[in-house]
């Protein structure tokens, strides 16, 4: 499928910033079922950009902007051609053995309630089938919170509130899968989901099954990603794969608006 992505992030600072450093993880990389045809990052200021790579192997762009700065808009646009793989990831050079992805983080900390539930849902002998059940059950149990975006709640909090953003539900999946002893990780990227006309920023999960490899799970669609997901970055949790990690040097509050319009 040919996916056209256009996504803008706008920061407005109540007080001018002397300077700004941002670390962007917004650039997808090729794999067997994902070919990046064109990709660009545009900023409405004079900036210095450096292409890099983080420890996970994600493409990183460092953005250095001089102030004074009362706002900045970062626009990402591109074209990606995808194909259906049954959710199984092929053609990615992995930096770490799967066992690394059993590690807890603050956002995906061990939680007895989640572990108990995951154990009940996943009672089959087949790990892959268990994970699919977990994915579907999670999507059913946790409602999408229409009023929020991004990822703020840790897995345990999202579990209690039973309403969460897509990324938060993905973190819940990660925590649940790990509680079963299955390596799992967070994926950030874009998804063309529901009735949207263009791919939106999205978060889902991947879990590792011996003999198969890494498999994507999207609790929001209750399915594995097909050809409507563009995979950008992975990490132990959403913060590690965050599209924009920024540092403010001034005393101001950041106002973040994300606007993805149809291509």
């Amino acid at each position: 499928m040919r996916l056209l992505i256009e996504h803008r992030t706008t920061f407005r600072f109540p007080e001018p910033q002397p300077r700004l450093i941002q670390m962007l993880r917004v650039t997808p990389q090729n794999n067997h079922d994902q070919t990046v045809v064109a990709w660009r990052i545009d900023v409405d200021r004079d900036v210095r950009m450096r292409e890099d790579c983080d420890g996970w192997g994600n493409a990183v762009t460092m953005l250095y902007v001089d102030g004074p700065l009362d706002g900045i808009e970062i626009a990402v646009s591109g074209e990606v051609v995808t194909s259906e793989s049954g959710g199984v990831l092929h053609g990615v050079r992995e930096r770490f053995p799967p066992t690394l992805f059993l590690r807890d983080t603050t956002a995906t900390a061990r939680d007895p309630a989640i572990a108990l539930w995951a154990g009940e849902v996943a009672r089959g002998a087949d790990r892959l089938a268990d994970l699919h059940r977990l994915n579907a059950a999670l999507g059913e149990r946790i409602a999408i919170d229409p009023h929020r975006a991004g990822v703020e709640l840790a897995a345990g909090e999202a579990w209690q509130q039973e309403r969460a953003t897509a990324g938060e539900i993905a973190q819940l999946f990660v925590a649940a899968a790990r509680s079963l002893g299955t390596p799992a990780r967070y994926v950030s990227g874009y998804g063309l989901i529901g009735g949207e006309r263009a791919p939106q920023p999205h978060g889902w999960a991947e879990a590792h099954v011996d003999g198969i490899g890494w498999i994507g799970f999207d609790p929001v669609t209750r399915l594995s990603p097909q050809d409507r997901h563009v995979r950008v970055a992975v990490a132990l949790d959403a913060a590690g794969a965050a599209p924009i990690a920024g540092s403010r040097l001034g005393p101001a509050v950041e106002v973040l608006t994300i606007d993805a319009s149809a291509a």
Partner: peptide, 11 residues
């Protein structure tokens, strides 16, 4: 790999 002192961020 499971040790918090191992920092995948800088691998």
């Amino acid at each position: 790999l499971g040790n918090p002192q191992f920092r995948p961020e800088i691998a």
